[in-house]
Amino acid sequence: MKRGITRGILYAVVHFSLEVACFYFIFNRFGQSQYWVLFALLYDCLAFVPQALFGALQDRFPRLDLGTCGAVMVITALLLPFDIIAFIMLCFGNALVHISGAHYTLCDVEGRLAPSGIFVGGGSFGVIIGQLLSKTELVIIPLALMAVSVIIICLIRRSVSVSGRADGIDIADKNMPIWIFILLMFTAVAVRAYIGYAIPIAWKSSALDSVILFFVMGIGKMLGGVFSDIIGAKRTAIFSLILSLPFMLFGNSNMLVSVIGVGLFSMTMAITLGALVSRLSDMPGISFGITTVGLFIGTMPAFFVLPKTLLANQVTVTLLTVTVIIIFIFGLKGDRKDEK
């Protein structure tokens, strides 16, 4: 357990550094481009979707060092002057490091979700720091962070030998046919990703507000994993979503109210991943890949259609959140001991 948490924290640092590097690169090189939207869409696609393929590769060859390979690709991308080649390297490097993180925080963690929750949460802090840094020419900072990440990944690899199986994580309803289950969890991830863009946040006007928002998101994701281990995944998922609704709906102009909602809402991140891994325990890489494909599919409509008025925002958030709650009610296993 302790080793799992340590791995989660170390990979959270790696995830943070990775996102700083990627968002620094994207905003610094393409932020002013007239094709910005296309680059943003392509980045999401090429960084998220191939994780299913790299995940399968990691599942098949658990000793393969995808993390170091990905981190070196990101460092190379930061140094390369050829924007498009660097961009593709950056996306694939990002995907490889993510899969490595999933591999080390899902396998051999004695059924705990906290390590993967902590790992996933680390990225949120990096997203906003990378965006803020991109306005400067301090490329040395993401480079230094990625160099530290390479060291961390190598150290973890040297000290831990994981089996490639995520045995012990058991939070899913196992009576449901596997394809229906995968489709439900995929939908939950995609819908949740879209809701993230629909939450009314008129209060967010300064850089500090953005930093607070992303930090709360990260803490929420981390706590989701921790609470799942303490009070149970189903309870955490359903209570956090129900509680988050009023805060999200009525926090449009009040930062404190809104960030409480966003924090609670982010808590289900590790739970969908854990649910998929529960059914596909010998395929943690593919499971992680399914969630990232879902994330991209959910993000895509946000590039084209977003509710325009506050009321439309509130209705969208409510309907979609209720959908996710229903999915969790049917897809997750009860938390009572007699149900285990």
């Binding site: 696609c45 394809w179 995968i182 593919i286 890949g289 494909v293």
Partner: peptide, 14 residues
């Protein structure tokens, strides 16, 4: 194309 390849891969693996 990327989505199609990934989904095909997931279906095959599962």
């Amino acid at each position: 194309a990327v989505i199609a390849v990934a989904v095909a891969f997931i279906i095959r693996a599962v």
